[in-house]
């Protein structure tokens, strides 16, 4: 079997395992929707136009970055990674399998959030923007997956992972136009947030979701997110560990 086939096969097994823990699967999808409802209630009519794409961004970051950083450290603690390393399965095929499944979940989330926006918050899907959004989503999902794997190199063990992952991801989300609009933020905070990848992902999605938006691909934003992805890959290659540190 070719390595690419093996990677696809890993996605299938990951997926099978994912659905066998229905409680975990349910909350993976319910969590972003819950945020969507809360923000729409808090910020009132018209907020859906902003929060539909913003929650898509939140969903993608959660399903890729947060999810991979936590589940891979868990698999590392349980000795699953070490076992894989003793078999002929190439390391990249195993990791590609995990990333493939994370991206799959991210896309399901995007579809659910888009449907919820259209059905409950009068935010129709901007069909003309869909091709450009797909480019943004694919690059971002890949980049945040790579960054999630990179973070596992810093996390010593699974007990430490929720604390570390949340400490990284939540502040970034708060200053990146996802939970709160950055319109009234001080300049320095805006500058900081423009150095980070989530801001560009969010701005791109929110821009494309606007009624009558420019439907071309926002290449600058995509490029910056991709650059972060490359940094993630480099860190992951350098620091990825097959066994936990205690």
């Amino acid at each position: 079997m070719s390595s690419a086939m093996l990677a696809l096969r890993q996605v299938r097994y990951e997926n099978r395992s994912f659905w066998r823990n229905p409680a975990a699967a349910f909350f993976t999808f319910a969590f972003p929707l819950l945020f969507m409802v809360i923000f729409n209630v808090l910020f009132g009519a018209g907020a859906g136009r902003f929060f539909t794409p913003a929650i898509m961004v939140f969903g993608v970051v959660t399903a890729t970055f947060t999810n991979l950083a936590m589940t891979v450290t868990m698999a590392r603690d349980n000795g699953i990674l070490k076992r894989v390393r003793g078999t002929p399965l190439p390391a990249w095929a195993y990791l590609a399998g995990r990333i493939g499944h994370a991206v799959l979940i991210a896309f399901v989330l995007v579809v659910i959030v888009g449907a919820a926006g259209a059905l409950f918050y009068e935010v129709p899907v901007p069909w003309a923007s869909v091709p450009a959004m797909l480019v943004v989503l694919i690059v971002s999902a890949a980049a945040f997956s790579a960054l999630g794997l990179a973070l596992t190199g810093v996390i010593p063990n699974a007990d430490a992972s929720p604390a570390i992952v949340n400490a990284v991801v939540l502040p970034v989300l708060f200053v990146s136009n996802v939970f709160i609009q950055m319109d009234n933020a001080p300049d320095w905070l805006n500058t900081v947030s423009l150095w980070l990848p989530v801001r560009h992902f969010a701005d791109a999605m929110i821009g494309l979701y606007r009624a009558g938006a420019d439907t071309s691909v926002p290449w600058t934003a995509v490029g910056i997110v991709a650059l972060w992805g490359v940094i993630g890959v480099a860190i992951a290659i350098r620091f990825f560990s097959w066994e936990p540190r205690r």
């Binding site: 093996l6 070490k82 078999t87």
Partner: peptide
Amino acid sequence: QTGVDEYLTVREIVTMVAGYY
């Protein structure tokens, strides 16, 4: 000390790993 994906059956895991060889 090792682990496997505990949500899979014995047959699924062994079949999955056999595919690597």
